[in-house]
Nucleic acid binder design. Structure first.
Lengths: 380, 380
DNA sequence: TTGAAAGCGCTAACAT
DNA sequence: ATGTTAGCGCTTTCAA
């Protein structure tokens, strides 16, 4: 296991070549302490000649800092995280940090594991999109161990962690209000809502109760926005319009959409709660041959590059993912350098981009071909 | 800068608590050397009680291994790399490795920098998609420094590095042959070809010359496949059908496509050479309102999830990106554990998925509305 | 301004 | 099977 053909030169090597002591050479190389200009130059010359490069591992051991952060997201294949990750990576590079990427698949156990491993590795900080906002104990522990955590996309209620989020309730509400204003009265929503409690919320929630959106996972808070839009418009809410996938998969989104469309009184519009759900919903619509926007409107959460290319182009809520990633990294670095400052909560602004997949609803059910079609078909 | 509230317990701490020597405790903890069952248990109890966790940095310093690899791709926002990265990450996790991700934006200077920094950081190996196959000196240097490199997506000719690739020439040839068999005789190609030399190749290349595809960047080797398909079918090649973007951006792909379509004798089909080029090409086609497949056929390189959702669905060459990423990681790990084995070149198999964006060409130019339309329009 | 020496937390000879 | 000791490459007191 010869790690290197000829092992790399060390500080003592450079010192010897420059005719100074180890500590002087180290000072010159590391740029700290007092060094005379003359020595500075001699040392750097020697270093260049020998091809010296600082051994970061050794440096880390004594400084206690690795200049590395850990990033725990759900899935790098999801454009949301890919975009954030790019932002994080760019900011890290600019600040001389490395970023170790791990995927949790929205599984808290995997996330807990990943965090543990990253902390063991000595990362200087973590950026985490927690799989479950009600289970953040491992993140709190990391912070207590001296490893700062910046939350992305979600917050952990009752904790004092920095976070970069958007206002999911507001964003969803805006999307639904758009549909209501177009005349839609039966709006389906395709969303995960993994935890039982979240699904019940739709019936339990009422205009009176003042729920803190920060205690909710994104899918639940987007549901809340859905509800609030209805309340504000004095519209009733029909629980059968809830297309709950329980599992975060495209296939479930497809079947949830199909179920919705095949119901006795199908929705005239669908709100898909994030990019994976959108793909699933579109697949379901395609299977039933439901045409947008004449037969069915669609508003998607998360804007992707292909959404302008499809016909019709898709109305979507855009999040500034790249900027959010950059911001999260920046906030984390500031925290690393100033562990005791107050927690920052950065709320990025989202934007509803109205395109052609959303239009006025059709008045007569007869004109909606997919309905009669679906009567013939069996299950999915 | 208090890194941790109360600093973490060390091996000596555990040893003391268990009433054994440091080295015995270390052996028990690290699972190496001889330890009696009795002591093994006592040490682990003590460790658990103290909440001991191995300091990986210290361990790395003495073992010379960090259990970390570096990954240098063009852009994590590109689904190709995101998919590979997911594969790499999953394999790394399974093998107890961490993966540091960096983006090169296809810039050799950035890549060289990234490699240097990762080597300084002490990564045990690198997975790199080299920005330019003719400029791999920094990768060779890393290898000479004892840091193995596995190439992804591209090879470095004349070097002995492991690589995971597909047969780009064959894949492109298959795609173009499909179009030729449909009856197309004027097939446009939208591709980067950054280097001047690559662009000249189209004219210079001839059936006789036996070019080694491994000396070419992906976009050039796909062009070669394009040419070979023509040669095999005894069809002439028209250099004006080359939509060269020079820069790897969507915008350039769009304008290259528009230029192609607005030319005096526009192509009846377009081959977009990777996913970014495809998005650009589609945008250009949409701008000119060129309908697929009646007016214009499209075959894309890289298959993405939305390509089945658009109308018409898009014919595409699929690469097993996830598997390739996994494979690259596996090969790298095997090389780390066996530095002297022969180089592996793993060629994954691609697949042409025929959908609805490719069909027979229209015989009469008059029926192609976008042509007349584009006569009116100005530039882009 | 420079040098000598200690030590970060671990592993790995070597001795017992 | 266990303990003693040295040392990875760097930073960092402390003296000079």
């Amino acid at each position: 296991m010869s790690r290197s053909a000829t092992s790399r030169p060390t500080v003592p090597d450079v010192a010897r070549a420059a005719g100074v002591s180890t500590s002087t050479a180290a000072r010159a190389l590391g740029g700290y302490g007092y060094v005379s200009a003359n020595v500075q130059e001699r040392v750097h010359e020697a270093a260049a000649k020998l091809g010296y490069r600082t051994n970061q591992v050794a440096k880390s051991m004594v400084t206690g800092r690795t200049n590395t952060i850990g990033v725990v997201g759900a899935d790098i294949e999801n454009p949301y995280f890919a975009g954030s990750m790019r932002g994080i990576g760019d900011m890290a590079r600019a600040t001389n940090y490395g970023a170790i990427l791990t995927n949790s698949d929205e599984d808290v156990a995997i996330e807990r594991d990943a965090v543990q491993i990253l902390v063991d590795r000595g990362v200087d900080g973590l950026i985490v999109a927690p799989a479950d906002v009600s289970d953040c104990s491992h993140l709190v522990m990391a912070m207590e161990r001296g490893v700062p955590v910046t939350l992305l996309d979600r917050t952990c209620p009752g904790t004092e962690m920095d976070a970069v989020i958007i206002d999911n309730v507001k964003a969803a509400k805006e999307a639904i209000t758009h549909l209501i204003e177009l005349g839609h009265r039966r709006i389906g929503i395709v969303t995960e809502l993994r935890r039982e409690a979240e699904a019940y919320d739709m019936e339990k929630m009422s205009p009176g109760q003042d729920i803190d959106p920060l205690t909710l996972n994104p899918s639940a808070s987007r549901l809340l926005g859905y509800l609030q839009a209805h309340w504000d418009a004095d519209l009733p809410v029909d629980p059968t319009l809830l297309g709950r996938t329980k599992t975060y998969t495209k296939a479930r989104a497809t079947s949830a959409t199909i179920d919705l469309l095949k119901s006795d009184d199908p929705p005239t519009a669908i709100f898909s709660v994030d990019n994976l759900m959108t793909i699933g919903a579109l697949e379901g619509m395609k299977k039933l041959d439901a045409h947008m926007p004449e037969e069915l409107s669609l508003v998607a959460f998360d804007d992707l590059d292909w959404m302008t290319l499809v016909t019709p182009s898709i109305t979507a809520v855009r999040q500034p993912v790249y900027e959010m990633g950059m911001n999260a990294a920046q906030i984390l670095f500031s925290r690393i350098n100033n562990p005791d400052r107050a927690a920052i909560r950065s709320v990025a602004s989202s934007e509803l981009i109205i395109r052609n997949s959303s239009g006025p609803p059709h008045t007569s059910p007869e004109s909606r071909v997919f309905i009669s079609k679906s009567k013939d078909a069996d299950s999915a």
